[in-house]
Design a protein around this nucleic acid. Structure first.
Lengths: 259, 259
DNA sequence: TAGTGGTCTAGACCACCGT
DNA sequence: CGGTGGTCTAGACCACTAC
């Protein structure tokens, strides 16, 4: 019956509560990784019902300030270090030094990189991938799916697609560890000399699957990067499709001035 | 008392409802700009209470499929055309043809571009901008803030910063319309020959201000792009800071293979 | 004034986590 | 087991829109 609620001061109660907790976080009174008071406690403290508290927490989650775990509670997010993806990470000199692109760039950021291979094997090429590879929709391609971690935190899920005609001759591409310098080094050893890489960047909200794969709260932003590796003969020998947690990456690109 | 609910088939009811409506949209049974049935109707149709219907609609809103207006209803979003930002948009030939970068790229996408100048004038350089320009924090710089529209829909808010020492000699930079080819054409006319542009891409959720400036629902993803314009003498003569609606842009970059 | 979405209540049961 | 968050109900009142 109450009703009461609503716009005592213009602003919805759940936003007032969210703002209050946000200030406590930003003011340091709630430290990173610390547990936010439970819903029961907050209901009593603010004199509201469960639904209102839950909307407030949902607001904080959407803002990326807390994450919640069923049965455990809500916790202040610790802001993880940013990994900078700079556009010189594909230099041959890195590969000659035995470093794949991911290792080269994250080491630079002072983060310990690890990789987990999720699957390697033939698949039917999805439409967009086939278009980029210049093959037909559904053609057999080699897919290498892997998950990258920075200091143990999953940050990036990447799938490389290679035309079967290219991949079948290079046995290392079917190994979990393709050897020093990564798959690009192996491709160059087999006569595929790279001329350029073309990257396409999109950003959007994470789907449920992506969020859980990267350990994100639903509603987080992700960067979707697709890269074509183009050889001097103009052939696309690899397409890499990557989903990254947006808050952990900054992408740098240099564009030469042209006429 | 009921309770009932919960996991009849593993999946929460509100997600089932959201999925059902999503299929109706993707299957074309709910056309773009069409009104989604009202909450009252949906409550009856699915036999659930208001809260459940509201969560389902919230899910669709988060996925960017519908937008809702208080007192009017929820409507299927018409998917606006994607503007592709390709990395050759700074070619001099575009400028010689009298086209600024934004015009060149959106025309290509078949969209009618318009620009609204929000402000032009001296400001104290924010820290990150000063760093990029190579001046001191708080130095006087010329700021040009403008809002870009595609087919009348706000899509991008950009602020250009130029060192005062560069800007003061070029009167056109203080005009709303800097003339054919945009400010880059004027800078080149005054002896600043560009060597390269360095772009930094970030993605995150929109703040409240950004969301309202771009007409987005809060919680939408945005792309934050910052560009340095570097001359052949190595000087940064402009820094452009841009906030874009993530669902309206795809960024393309070409990275030459280097040793 | 009738209909819409926006907020809120005071409960309920479920699923998960720790002890 | 008790505590946590996750889902849901069946209402209520408020604010806005359209007629």
């Amino acid at each position: 019956m109450t009703s009461v609620a609503g716009a005592r001061s213009g602003k919805p109660r759940y936003l007032q509560i969210a703002d209050d907790i946000e200030e406590q976080i930003k003011g340091g009174r709630l430290a990173p990784a610390e547990e936010v008071p439970s819903e029961t406690v907050l209901m009593e403290r603010y004199g509201v019902s469960s639904g209102t508290v839950r909307k407030a927490i949902a607001e904080l989650r959407a803002a990326g300030l807390v994450e919640t775990f069923q049965g455990k509670g809500s916790f202040v997010k610790s802001r993880p270090p940013v990994t900078r993806k700079s556009s010189d990470r594909f230099r041959r000199s890195h590969r000659r030094a035995g470093k794949a692109a991911y290792i080269a760039e994250t080491e630079q950021a002072g983060v310990k990189p690890t990789v987990q291979v999720l699957s390697i094997g033939p698949v039917a090429a999805p439409r967009e991938i086939a278009e980029r590879l210049g093959t037909a929709d559904g053609d057999k391609v080699l897919a290498r799916r892997r998950l990258y971690f920075s200091d143990g935190v999953p940050t990036e899920e990447a799938t490389s697609y290679l035309p079967w005609s290219v991949a079948r001759d290079i046995p290392e591409l079917f190994e979990e560890n393709p050897g020093g310098g990564g798959i690009y080094a192996r491709l160059e050893e087999h006569g595929h000399e790279f001329a350029e890489y073309v990257e396409t960047v999109r950003a959007r909200l994470a789907t449920k699957q992506e969020a859980s794969a990267l350990g994100l709260s639903p509603g987080s932003a992700i960067i979707h990067l697709t890269r074509n590796a183009v050889t001097t003969s103009g052939k696309v020998v690899e397409v890499c499709d990557t989903i990254m947690a947006a808050d952990q990456f900054v992408l740098d690109y240099r564009i030469p001035a042209l006429d």
